[in-house]
């Protein structure tokens, strides 16, 4: 019983069977997780997601919308929340599809408590990281927006590995001017070194949004 997920994490349980919901809720509460229970996917979609690391634990045979369909639905709506599937059937083909679509784990009822808690911890870690990355990217993007057009241009040239002299020749300004712009880019972006700036530039390119 070494699992100690952070207190601020939340688990959403979707299962049409009340006994299963209650049991799982007790299990998660016992390790200090917050839980929210839903009987169907539709019910879940009506709540707003809190700004804490969270994950979904759901039965693959949901009433109405099926589990896999629901997973695809979330992806389409760009809601990134790690999913742990449960099944009372042990359907192999379904589990393969679920895992391929990015599920964290696929557990067959009745599952070992530790398996479930491990999966939840993994999912929450994944969500926390995802959240952190998203926040960092958002900040980065905000910083980038504060740069002038010339500064943005110079940042990309620096990141491409050009020397000051080369940049000056490239855009037709003096080397001194390049140095000034470059200093202001470093400051505005909060980069501690050139390497830092290159990494930021990569991150921005990877996430253009």
């Amino acid at each position: 019983m070494n699992t100690r997920p952070q207190q601020d994490a939340m688990v959403f349980i979707i299962d049409d069977d009340e006994a299963v919901r209650e049991g799982l809720a007790a299990l998660f509460r016992s390790v200090g997780l917050q839980v929210k229970l839903f009987a169907s996917a539709a019910e879940f979609r009506q709540t707003s997601l809190p700004d804490v690391p969270s994950c979904l634990v759901l039965d693959i045979r949901l009433p109405g919308l099926g589990g896999l369909e629901f997973q695809a639905d979330l992806t389409r709506a760009n809601i990134q929340i790690p999913i742990i599937f449960m099944t009372g059937h042990g359907d192999i083909p379904m589990s393969v599809r679920a895992m391929k679509a990015g599920a964290v784990e696929f557990l067959t009822k009745p599952f070992r408590d530790q398996d479930m808690l491990d999966a939840v911890q993994l999912a929450i870690e994944q969500d926390r990281k995802q959240h952190k990355d998203a926040v960092a990217t958002f900040k980065l993007k905000a910083n980038f927006e504060t740069l002038s057009a010339r500064e943005q241009q110079i940042m990309s040239l620096v990141a491409a590995g050009l020397m000051n002299k080369q940049i000056a020749a490239e855009i037709g300004v003096s080397e001194v001017t390049v140095k000034v712009h470059r200093g202001s880019v470093m400051r505005k972006m909060g980069a501690k070194s050139i390497a830092d700036l290159v990494r930021m530039s990569d991150a921005l390119r990877a996430r253009p949004k």
């Binding site: 006994a19 049991g23 799982l24 009372g88 408590d113």
Partner: peptide, 11 residues
């Protein structure tokens, strides 16, 4: 399996 899963979780 449904109630069994609940029993295991509650236990």
């Amino acid at each position: 399996r449904q109630p069994l899963a609940a029993v295991v979780s509650n236990g």
